[in-house]
Amino acid sequence: MKSPLVRAKKLNKVVSILTEYFENNGYSEVQLPIYEFYDLLEGVTWDFKDENIIRFIDRYTGKSLVLRPDFTPQACRFVSLYMKDYPLPIRISYKGRIFRNVDLNKGLKSEKYQVGCELFGLQEFLGDIEIIFLAYNSLKKIGLKNYKIVLGDSNLVNEIIKTFGNNRSVVKCLKEKNLDELKKLYNEKSISENEYVLLLAMIKGFGDKFVLDEVIEKSSFNDRLQQRLIYLKDLMENLISIGVEEGDIIFDATEMRGFNYYTGINFDIINSKGVVIGGGGRYDNLMEKFDWPLQSCGFALNIEEILQDIDFLDNKQKFDYLVVGENYFFKALNLKNDGFKVLWIKDELEIENIMKLYDFEKIIK
């Protein structure tokens, strides 16, 4: 039986395991408000556009409020307001729902239940390692299998854009992974041969850590670009050395999701069906907007998408007694007083249905 009760229990169990795992790794849970002032989130929230948010008016102040579309700005504000006396690095976790428009034309709304972590005040390389390691192993902790981390880097993309003088054709080419358009740019002499070879390697640069070798080789004419690629290879090699399976981390040289928001690595976690079940990255500029410039990175997991791949938590809730009948109502209460787990129902005809949802050691009727 597909039951909303079973689903709720499953969600709570997954969230409980994750929260405990984060706590054991030093990430203390904080409570964040479900809505914020529009002005506070504008300019600091991922993909913050009027058509993507759920907005309403505060009846007392007349100001615009928004159901939170993203936890990260709230986490940054919380840390900047209440945790300046804490030793660095600061580690926090959170859980709850985010809200976004998913289909403006049909008027449908979407909400996602997320659990996530944010890390503040740790240098880039160590912070990147810790946050990816934590995200990867948190999913192992709940028994998830067959998921991949697809790693991109906004720093790399921005370096490419600078190298080519913000050439929109080059950016479009990379974003779309368009080899024909790249060849056209080369034939038109819009890019040099070295640049063409590099861009070709980047567009094809999707796979394990070894795809970075060719891109590193082709970037020898740009030291800053090459050093960033070496950083990314070192990152992947170190993650593999501490237990991330080599086939579970994939590099995408032209990943451009949110390159104006992220300041370094960004990653998606994708399940075997190709569904994004989580993601995160580095956003070093964000804390500056809250008057405390700390290096920062984090991730969030989409719990309801994860639930579809979790089977072992579908066990029915167990009780010591099922007590049936109005005459046994006080018997059930006395058993509860004695410390037993007891479920009471009035009608004997409901026993068959109730047995589909719960397991009982004994039945009294």
Rank of each mutant, 00 (worst) to 15 (best):
L11K: 15
R168K: 14
P4C: 06
V342M: 08
G152K: 06
E350V: 07
V342F: 08
N178I: 08
D359S: 12
N155C: 12
L239M: 06
L41P: 03
N25L: 05
G107W: 09
K13T: 14
C297A: 00
I303M: 04
W46A: 14
L307T: 02
L174P: 00
G96E: 04
F251W: 07
W344P: 05
M236W: 04
L286P: 04
S3R: 11
L212W: 09
L235K: 05
G274S: 06
K365C: 06
N337M: 14
D50T: 07
Y321I: 08
F133A: 04
K336I: 13
F340S: 12
I306R: 03
R100D: 04
V150L: 10
M83C: 13
G274Y: 01
Q31R: 15
E361H: 11
Y136N: 00
K84M: 13
Y321M: 07
M256E: 08
N327W: 11
Y94Q: 09
D291K: 15
I310T: 10
I203V: 06
A300R: 02
I310L: 06
L343R: 13
G152S: 10
L294A: 02
S64M: 13
V14A: 11
G281D: 07
T61Y: 00
F360Q: 04
P87R: 09
E130P: 00
S219R: 04
K2M: 10
Y27N: 00
F206I: 12
V150T: 11
N353R: 09
L229A: 08
K145W: 05
Y27M: 04
I132R: 00
G325M: 00
E111G: 02
N260W: 11
R100A: 02
E361M: 06
N271Y: 04
V275G: 01
I142H: 07
F319A: 09
N327G: 15
D70K: 12
V115F: 03
E193R: 15
L357H: 03
K273G: 05
S296M: 04
E181Q: 10
E111L: 01
G26K: 08
Y136D: 01
G116Y: 07
I203M: 04
S192C: 08
L40A: 12
L41G: 01
Y262P: 07
K356V: 09
D213T: 09
F37D: 13
N155H: 11
E193K: 15
K209V: 15
S28V: 13
D180M: 12
Y94M: 10
F360T: 03
N178V: 04
N260Y: 13
T19C: 11
S220N: 14
L307N: 02
L225R: 06
Y27S: 01
L349M: 14
E352M: 09
D85N: 15
K49G: 08
G121T: 10
N105T: 12
I53E: 00
K341Y: 11
G107K: 01
L104T: 13
E217M: 08
M355E: 13
K183Q: 12
D223W: 10
L88R: 12
D314Y: 08
M236P: 07
E350P: 05
E20Q: 15
L40F: 08
K341I: 14
D70W: 09
K365F: 11
Y94G: 09
I90K: 04
P33R: 05
E193D: 14
E305K: 15
M355C: 14
L239D: 01
K162H: 03
I129C: 00
I160E: 01
I160L: 02
M355A: 13
L333W: 03
T254H: 02
D291Q: 15
R228H: 08
I90H: 00
